Simulated scan of single mutants.
Amino acid sequence: MFKGLGGLGDMAGMMKKAQEMQTRMAEMQESLETMTVVGESGAGLVKATATAKGVLTALEIDPTIFNPDEKEVVEDLILAAIKDAQAKAQDRSQREMQELTDSLGLPKDMNLPF
């Protein structure tokens, strides 16, 4: 009766996998907003906290670095901590995405989201 429809079973399975992937992607994107990373510079004198999506949420500066003669050093430390936090956020996001693609059996070189 269904002899000529051999590929439809595979198509239904693919659609189910696509829906599962879409749901898990949405969940992961939501969780990236609450995951945090901390970037540091100056051996921890400046710390920048960001979400795994790269949104800066906090900046902690050790008061011992406030010397008016070294204003540029302080600015450089702040920028370095922010850049470190952003790099860690991107790395965390990529690791989470890789875990998702691995769990769904997708190729390692598949770049999501599309």
Rank of each mutant, 00 (worst) to 15 (best):
G54A: 06
T36Y: 08
T101E: 12
M35N: 09
L59H: 02
E70Q: 13
K88V: 02
A50V: 05
Q19F: 01
D10V: 03
E72V: 11
R24K: 13
K83N: 15
T64F: 14
K88C: 03
M21K: 01
L32D: 11
M15Y: 00
E99K: 12
A18C: 01
A85D: 06
D62V: 03
Q86P: 14
I82A: 13
G13A: 03
E30W: 05
K3F: 15
E60W: 01
G13T: 00
N111A: 12
N111P: 08
V38A: 09
Q86Y: 13
D102G: 14
E33N: 13
L56W: 00
E33M: 11
L104D: 01
D84M: 09
T23L: 07
L77Y: 01
F2N: 14
T36L: 08
L100K: 01
A43F: 12
K47M: 06
D10F: 07
E72H: 14
L79E: 07
T23V: 13
S103Q: 04
Q22H: 09
P107K: 00
L79K: 06
R24L: 07
L104Q: 02
L32E: 14
L5P: 02
Q22Y: 08
V74A: 04
V55I: 14
E20R: 01
M35S: 14
D91Y: 07
M15T: 00
G42K: 08
M1R: 05
A85E: 06
L100I: 02
L56N: 06
G7T: 08
T34D: 10
A48M: 09
A52I: 07
D102A: 15
R92G: 12
D84H: 05
T51E: 02
G105M: 02
V74D: 03
K108W: 14
L104V: 08
G42A: 11
V74H: 10
K17T: 00
A58E: 11
I78C: 09
E40Y: 15
L106G: 06
R24G: 03
K88G: 03
E99A: 13
T49N: 05
G6H: 06
T64M: 13
E75T: 10
L100P: 00
A81R: 07
V38R: 04
M11E: 12
E75L: 08
I78F: 07
T23Y: 12
E99R: 09
A85V: 07
E30P: 10
A12V: 04
A80E: 12
S103M: 05
D109F: 00
A85W: 10
E75D: 14
A26N: 11
Q94M: 11
D76I: 09
G44W: 11
A89W: 00
M35G: 12
Q86E: 11
V46Q: 05
D102C: 14
V55H: 13
